[in-house]
């Protein structure tokens, strides 16, 4: 159950990687840091509004407001990053964008560390959601938070699925990912579409960050390796599921989450990265396009 909820977090983050990869074919290394910003923003707004502290009563409305705030701010941030840093490099070699992304990731981490932004101390996320255990099946506790995380992820992913596969915007996105030039000839506004991919990716990342903060309640400082590893694991999930493929990212995320949990529980807890990266190498060696990444037309 824990594996499922962690997995759905990974899936949410992996979606951002996948969407950007689908349109621009590059790894957005700064994506993991957007998750961090999302998590910290939700803490920040709670602290600002006086909802912090462990005695603050759980409230769904507050949680929803926080989530919304984080998503909106991160969406704007995603838009700005794309507009200012990535768009001018659209025609440059992909490697250059990759390096800009690494630079952007460093920038976000270190700006986050400034005392006037988030500081270098760990912070405790207030318990916005009740810590109830719903039921216990064969020694496995199913908590409300886990259920909410999974539900929230499924809702967001279903929304995204609808957007991509059933709307004109989604059609434009799929067209852009299939062939940018042709799509623009066909009247698709490429710039807007790519911006949109970034904004949606960043919003999903913010949601993941918020859910992460609520689940673990202990926020590591912005430059802590946790955030980078979180992003990397999610990226591995995207690759395993078949990068560029939305449903693949969901499956990959859940798979990696479960694998990690079972690996740490039944084999050894100190080799978490080894499991994740070994499965990546195995998948890449035997099916380099990932589980669902066949030569399908509707890549996004």
């Amino acid at each position: 159950m824990d594996g499922l909820s962690v997995g759905s977090l990974y899936a949410l983050i992996a979606l951002g990687y996948t969407m950007v990869y689908g349109v621009l074919q590059f790894i957005n290394f700064a994506h993991g840091d957007i998750v961090m910003i999302g998590a910290w923003l939700s803490f920040w707004i709670c602290a600002r509004l006086g909802w912090a502290g462990n005695d603050a009563p759980p409230s769904l409305a507050r949680a929803a407001a926080t989530l919304l705030f984080a998503m909106v701010v991160c969406g704007t941030l995603g838009f700005l990053i794309e507009r200012l840093a990535y768009r001018p490099l659209r025609s440059a070699p992909r490697l250059n964008i990759l390096i800009t992304a690494i630079g952007m990731s460093l920038l976000l981490e270190n700006v986050g560390q400034l005392p006037i932004v988030f500081g270098t101390e760990n912070q405790g996320m207030p318990g916005l959601l009740p810590k109830e255990t719903l039921l216990s099946v064969a020694g496995v506790n199913i908590t409300l938070i886990d259920v909410l995380i999974i539900g929230c992820s499924i809702a967001l992913m279903a929304g995204l699925n609808h957007l991509v596969y059933s709307t004109r915007l989604g059609l434009a996105m799929r067209a852009a990912s299939f062939d940018t030039k042709t799509a623009s000839l066909m009247g698709v506004n490429i710039n807007r579409t790519i911006s949109l991919a970034f904004v949606i990716g960043a919003m999903l990342a913010a949601a993941a960050g918020f859910l992460y903060a609520v689940k673990y309640t202990n926020l590591n400082q912005p430059a802590f390796p946790t955030w980078i590893l979180l992003g990397l694991t999610a990226f591995v999930a995207a690759v395993v599921g078949g990068i560029g493929n939305i449903r693949g990212a969901m499956i990959g995320g859940v798979l990696i989450g479960l694998l990690e949990k079972f690996g740490t529980a039944y084999v050894s807890s100190s080799f978490k990265e080894v499991y994740v990266f070994s499965i990546l190498i195995l998948v890449l060696l035997f099916k380099p396009t990932g589980i669902l990444g066949s030569a399908r037309v509707e890549k996004v």
Binding site: D2, V6, F224, K261, S269, S270
Partner: peptide
């Protein structure tokens, strides 16, 4: 004797054992 790694967010597997 269980182990973890600095930066891990999740310890439920070790704690269950």
């Amino acid at each position: 004797v269980q182990t973890y790694k600095g930066g891990d967010p999740d310890f439920s597997a070790q704690l269950t054992t």
